[in-house]
């Protein structure tokens, strides 16, 4: 029972981190930094879903950028072109990505093997073409511009700080729900599935149903993040939702490690900041930044390889080993 009780130090630590995260707009007026950290928050929302899917249920998706894009374009279209309220756009984006996730997961998860990875890869490419070609809805390769800021009732969230709080507020709620989930019956079932499929079957766990549910949740979170993102930046284009973003998301989940939410969140912060290194490293030269940006895909690829080879369990595994040493030392 000992490990089920939540450690007081964990609670205090989490509260401090949360306080720090929410204090950022008060502590700095650097709009660029706020924007970059807002992107980090958007990615945290998606990666929370990836952590459940990859880290807990052991499934790989190579197409989550597509759900991210579906969410973004749906909300952009509903709010900008149809003139419906912002909240409607976000809700419809989540509903649509749920449906898309279900349609993709049901056939591919009934089969054993890597069908989900293949199906999501294909789905991502199909959606990339759709984003480019469905000009009437998406604006085609030129992108969709003039997407209005989030607004509820008469209140429009148009400041950099306001958008930061919106995104991180949603991210915090998503993380809290996910943290509850992984400590529940469903979380145990996911870890069981990862541990031994035969054992999970013997416990009466409906493996296909479980995998489908987790996949749909992860798709919905990507859709939610996309919808929020569209209204934060005001402009979206197909390149934001391409295969390399899907790979980046996998890199975050892999670097973050399995059976953990904190690890993937940390990995998301690190990997999202790479192309925006100048926001946190003062005096970083223009050419150095350009070099980082040119090589960023290689950094993601190398990260995946390095973690698989040298850091089994990713950041979460490393954290567990460190705290394990601490416990033994006590």
């Amino acid at each position: 029972m000992r490990e089920r009780r939540i450690d007081i130090r964990t609670v205090v630590g989490l509260a401090l981190v949360a306080a720090l995260v929410f204090a950022v707009p008060v502590l700095t007026s650097d709009r660029y930094l706020l924007k970059v950290l807002t992107f980090v928050g958007v990615n945290v929302i998606i990666v929370t879903g990836m952590a459940l899917l990859f880290g807990y249920a052991g499934q790989v998706s190579l197409g989550h950028a597509a759900f991210y894009g579906i969410g973004a374009y749906t909300s952009a279209y509903v709010v900008s072109s149809l003139g419906w309220p912002w909240l409607t756009g976000v809700v419809l984006a989540v509903v649509l990505t749920c449906a898309g996730g279900l349609l993709l997961a049901l056939p591919s998860l009934r089969l054993k093997g890597h069908y989900l990875a293949m199906a999501t890869l294909g789905f991502g490419e199909i959606m990339r073409v759709v984003f480019v070609e469905a000009r009437g809805v998406t604006g085609g390769p030129d992108g969709f511009s003039g997407i209005p800021f989030a607004s509820v009732g008469g209140l429009t969230i148009d400041s950099a700080g306001g958008n930061y709080w919106l995104i991180w507020g949603v991210a915090a709620v998503v993380l809290a729900f996910a943290a509850n989930l992984v400590r529940s019956r469903a979380g145990r079932a996911m870890r069981a599935l990862h541990g031994s499929e035969s054992g999970a079957l013997a416990c009466g766990i409906d493996l296909t149903g479980l995998k489908v549910r987790v996949f749909v949740i992860s798709a919905a979170l990507a859709g939610l993040a996309g919808a929020l993102y569209a209204h934060v930046v005001g402009f979206i284009s197909p390149s934001t939702f391409s295969l390399h973003v899907s790979v980046l998301l996998v890199a975050m989940a892999v670097l973050g490690g399995t059976r953990s939410l904190a690890g993937p969140v940390l990995a998301t912060v690190l990997l999202t900041m790479i192309p925006f290194a100048d926001a946190v490293i003062p005096g970083l030269s223009r050419s150095a930044l350009e070099m980082i940006q040119e090589w960023q895909e290689d950094v993601y690829g190398l990260t995946i390889i390095a973690v698989l080879l040298f850091v089994p369990g990713g950041l979460a595994g490393a954290l567990r080993r460190v705290s394990g040493w601490g416990r033994r030392a006590e």
């Binding site: 029972m1 490990e3 089920r4 019956r185 145990r188 079932a189 870890r191 069981a192 541990g195 031994s196 035969s198 054992g199 999970a200 013997a202 416990c203 009466g204 766990i205 059976r259």
Partner: peptide, 21 residues
């Protein structure tokens, strides 16, 4: 044995209660 190696003994047994919860 098909245990969940990375779960505690208690959690293994709790997982067994999946079908009745």
């Amino acid at each position: 044995t098909q245990l969940f190696e990375e779960m505690s003994a208690l959690e293994n047994v709790m997982t067994g209660a999946h079908a009745v919860t």
